[in-house]
Design a protein around this nucleic acid. Structure first.
Lengths: 335, 335
DNA sequence: GCCGTCACTGTTAGCGTTAACAACATTGGT
DNA sequence: ACCAATGTTGTTAACGCTAACAGTGACGGC
């Protein structure tokens, strides 16, 4: 084999047909005699022929690649999403090209999208959990299939989200149901839609129960900030229940409470969000809310493929409901 | 603009030059008059022209994309590596296409590599931590630049690894230095090179200290298996020091010890591996070993680019030394 | 003043594939 | 036996780019 491997014409010559017939076999075109099809298949196998994606992309105008723009693929959520996206895409014959980005401002996002565009990706999935990302998305060429995950609900862009509000409501309600009079909340950064949704859900549940929400404790997703908030919570004797915006915040809170001698769940109950694989092994095992990342990935890809196949697909959106996972970090308040 | 955007000829027409001159400007060719260059740049900007990567890939025979084959991109290690790889590649003008894979057997790996190959990636990085992966790699076409990360040290393939042995030795030595007579080890799965290396390092440190290694407790990286091993360790009064093959195992061990009323570090000291961001907020904060994923990514990409530019680069290899991060989970044994 | 050299630019020919069309063989209805 | 419809195959022309080569002036040495 030459440096660049055999081309379609080589296969054609060996099979005694034209290159176009080979192309037809490859693309599952119907009007090919069974016998010819087999001859071509044999020739392909014999030569170890592999279609040239670049040539195909050139002539069709799009490659079998979808681009994903994400921020911090080290966090559990984005990483899971990316992995699920890749698995789903592979099943559909698509490769996934990642364009991660340090900051989610327009400039960075636009740059990442540009990079994908110049590779002529078939479509783009933007995991755009923060406000500043939305603006960048509206200036994009309208002819590129696009799906946003965890993006701005108020923008007219196809969107798939976890139902943050419902998840947070369930978490808060779970604590209220256990008998707690109120629930404190350690939130994520305020420019993330995830945070905002979870804060909303928490508020809604409290208001529906006729309770005034206590002051919000703002965190930044990290265990470090959870720890800082936990140190304050531990000092306040009236605190009996805390809902944190993710499991890492919860870990930090647990650590702080432990240091102050406040037992969980005997003195204070804690609920997290995300259900990271380790949550079941925190001290104590953490009750948390599990978003279904696989479902999100499937929905996103489905929305994207619909657009790719049909030209454009309008501003659809889909919401995935998370589920509460009850473990040992919640108990009734002592009286 | 048409559906597919302006092409090079459109830019050329607007700038009053030939498309070849545009190409020269784009590729930084020297012999272009400054004034012409500026005219072309202006035309590019005015039209919002974006070079077509597919066409370029077709004619040059390779795209500006590198393929990454990895298994479980949800785990902290692989995810960090992937992110770092992507950042580094982007800086060099390369996109990264991920081909994650459920199992690391030859079949899956070969399939993933094939997919990358048919997209004519410029090179491939395989994160191949298990034994079965090695064989698949030897059958690959020799003309594709390839780098293995955490692969088989005994195979003649360019390889970048974290120095698992040194890291494990440091962790074990740290415990011995604290005064412990011996150190128990909860390992990862036995077909991972990472595991094998860490077991080796642990053994070496103990033997060098004149101690017979106690029986190995095999785990599978998960907190769940760490918990199971921890339950056994907690029952053995003579155990005073444990080194786990990663931080999640350590979390499970901590949880089990806590349940059995064995205090860390007062009764038992624990050291992990990986330094996940949460390790500092475990109960107690975990002493662990931090591999430098950024350095691994940089080294891998450097090796790969060298091969890409120079044709082939032989069987180079590079090892990255990890560092010990001391926290509160280690103390001298009580007497 | 002629010719070689150099800097700059244009022309042409592919890269490997798919799409559009043309050509031929086969079938079935009359 | 003829014609239209249908099934199967081949031929040709793009797609947008780079590489190789071919000009065109300008400049300097003889």
């Amino acid at each position: 084999m030459a440096v660049h491997g055999p081309a379609m014409t080589d296969v054609a010559r060996l099979a005694g047909v034209s290159h176009q017939t080979v192309s037809r076999v490859l693309n599952g075109h119907p009007n090919v005699r069974e016998q010819t099809r087999l001859r071509v298949r044999a020739a392909i196998a014999e030569l170890g022929y592999r279609p040239n994606g670049a040539a195909r992309a050139l002539v069709t105008g799009r490659s079998q690649v979808i681009g994903v723009v994400a921020q911090n693929t080290t966090l559990y959520g984005p990483a899971s999403l990316l992995a699920a996206l890749e698995q789903t895409a592979a099943a559909e014959g698509f490769a996934v090209s990642v364009g991660s980005v340090r900051n989610l401002d327009h400039r960075s996002i636009s740059a990442a999208v540009e990079r994908h565009l110049s590779h002529r990706v078939a479509g783009i999935v933007v995991i755009a959990p923060v406000e500043s990302a939305g603006e960048a998305l509206e200036r994009l060429p309208k002819d590129v299939p696009l799906v946003t995950v965890d993006g701005d609900p108020s923008r007219p862009v196809p969107l798939v989200t976890v139902d943050q509000v419902a998840g947070a409501r369930a978490a808060t309600q779970h604590l209220l149901d256990a008998g707690h009079r109120t629930v404190w909340h350690v939130s994520g950064p305020s420019d993330w839609f995830d945070s905002v949704g979870r804060i909303d859900g928490w508020r809604q549940a409290l208001l529906a129960a006729g309770t005034d929400p206590p002051p919000l404790m703002p965190g930044d997703w990290s265990a470090a900030s959870g720890y800082r908030c936990g140190q304050m919570l531990a000092r306040m004797p009236e605190v009996t229940a805390v809902f944190t915006a993710n499991d890492h915040l919860a870990l930090g809170v647990l650590r702080a409470l432990h240091e102050f001698g406040r037992r969980v769940p005997d003195d204070i109950s804690v609920v997290g969000f995300d259900d990271v694989p380790e949550a079941a092994y925190f001290i104590p095992p953490l009750t948390t809310v599990r978003p279904d990342f696989d479902a999100v990935a499937r929905a996103s890809l489905h929305l994207l493929l619909t657009q790719i196949e049909s030209g454009t697909g309008g501003a659809l959106r889909q919401t995935i409901a998370p589920t509460l996972v009850a473990r040992d970090s919640v108990a009734p308040p002592r009286r």
